[in-house]
Design a protein around this nucleic acid. Structure first.
Lengths: 253, 253
DNA sequence: AATGTGAGTGAGTGATTACTTACATCCGGC
DNA sequence: GCCGGATGTAAGTAATCACTCACTCACATT
């Protein structure tokens, strides 16, 4: 990058990026006050203007520290970026998240419907909790091949494997039709993503009722759009503007 | 933006961006050789490194012109960016594209299945034809509110209206179940997007057969995943790795 | 032949870039 | 008291940023 000119001179943020960044990542409580404010400012400004569109001077100004203080903690600007997304990556592909998702997806006692609802709720909650980090990871993966690879190989493959396994299990039990697994995973995940991404990006009109929308989304994904051959549909009626007590505000943590 | 420091001094790329950019857009045949090469270089490099990550010096070098030549044709760097995405926006929301999509979506003689297949083929073709412009519009809409608004208000609303109208029509005819229209549109469009976006981003493993995947996607969107209550499913069998002559390589232009 | 015009450019402009260096200040262990 | 490491910063550094200026050149109109 010509705009980031010293970038490739330092070997700091070069090869096996995440091993290094994860090692360098110390949790918030080990940080000094100023260090914490640098991270917060960077998180906020990167999410808004992007990595290449943000100068270290602005981060320092916004954090109320001297510019050199940033480089006391990070060898290069890019290391700061990586330190922001690395913990998110770790939580996404780490054993905790995978086990949590796999537990939901693999639980045979859950109806497919309930499983999908929980998955959407679970991921929506997680995404909104880490919204700025998610946004940065997403938008910067356009420009940084290492991030794109990590996102693709790490996160997508994880999601894919968990969902595919759950679908295969239920397909063998005859619960779902024998559709192409890859396509089914793609459609399912994109349906969930269409729920989460607009909220993550700050688009999205004021939503009336998340639970109702989740139920309707799952309903369509499971039963399709077509009129059943024998009046099969028994799910959410959903005549567009109905606001009756049909959502389910109970549900677990 | 501190990185783009002169940006807000010039009133050139300020308010009603697209009116201006569209007016300034002259089709390729009216360009000089060097101007054309500037546009091509910018298209290529912006798509790869992003607007903020690309310097005018690099564009000039890559185009084989002097840096000042860029500013002979564009008042500011941002005007160059807008001139790249404006024609795409115009074609997306303009009467041609809307009529084409609306014709497909509104044609009552088409089966819902065939309509969706044509829509996917049509949009996939269009997206791949304009891949760099699409990519730039998508990635820069994270950072430029005017682009985000245009993409949201213009393109999404167009898509939404066309698809919603088609669905409502078929819902009134009893062809599809009475589901929530907004949710149905969202799931449908995201299913199509999940088909197009990975190809646009250069992700996506080498795909065996587009037609087969389109058919399988449409099948799932229409009939859902669940086993029908009376063995209803009659669509694509799709036992994961079957490669037999079941795709439909006929289909129109 | 004089004049005008748009394309094109070499050589700048001052501001800003990521990053460094040298030098303080703090704080806990001896 | 004194040392050593970690934290913080003012004041740089050379390179690069978007953009401008003064100018040439080719060509068209008169």
């Amino acid at each position: 990058m010509p705009v980031e000119r010293h970038e490739d001179r330092t070997p700091s943020a070069a090869q096996d990026v995440f091993a290094e960044a994860l090692a360098a990542y110390h949790p918030p409580q080990g940080m000094t006050e100023k260090h914490r404010r640098i991270v917060e400012a960077a998180l906020r400004i990167f999410a808004q203007k992007g990595y290449a569109g943000t100068s270290t001077a602005e981060i320092a100004r916004e954090a109320g520290v001297a510019e050199a203080t940033i480089f006391r903690h990070y060898k290069a600007k890019k290391d700061l970026l990586l330190s922001l997304v690395a913990p998110l990556m770790a939580r996404l592909v780490g054993p905790v998240a995978v086990r949590s998702a796999a537990e939901i997806a693999g639980d045979p006692s859950l109806s497919l419907e309930e499983m999908l609802r929980r998955l959407i709720r679970d991921r929506l909650h997680f995404a909104l909790e880490n919204a700025p980090r998610f946004r940065i990871l997403l938008q910067e993966s356009f420009f940084h091949p290492e991030l794109r690879d990590a996102l693709w190989r790490g996160i997508w493959q994880q999601i894919h494997d968990v969902v595919a396994a759950a679908l295969r299990q239920r397909m063998e039990r005859g619960e779902i039709r024998p559709v192409d697994l890859e396509v089914a995973v793609r459609v399912l995940v994109s349906g969930v993503a269409s729920f989460i991404l607009p909220r993550l990006m700050g688009l999205q009109a004021p939503v009336a009722d998340d639970e109702k929308e989740i139920a309707a989304t799952v309903d369509i994904l499971l039963k399709g759009l077509l009129q059943g051959p024998a009046g099969a549909a028994a799910g959410v009626p959903a005549d567009e503007t109905t606001g009756g007590p049909q959502g389910r505000p109970d549900t677990e943590a």
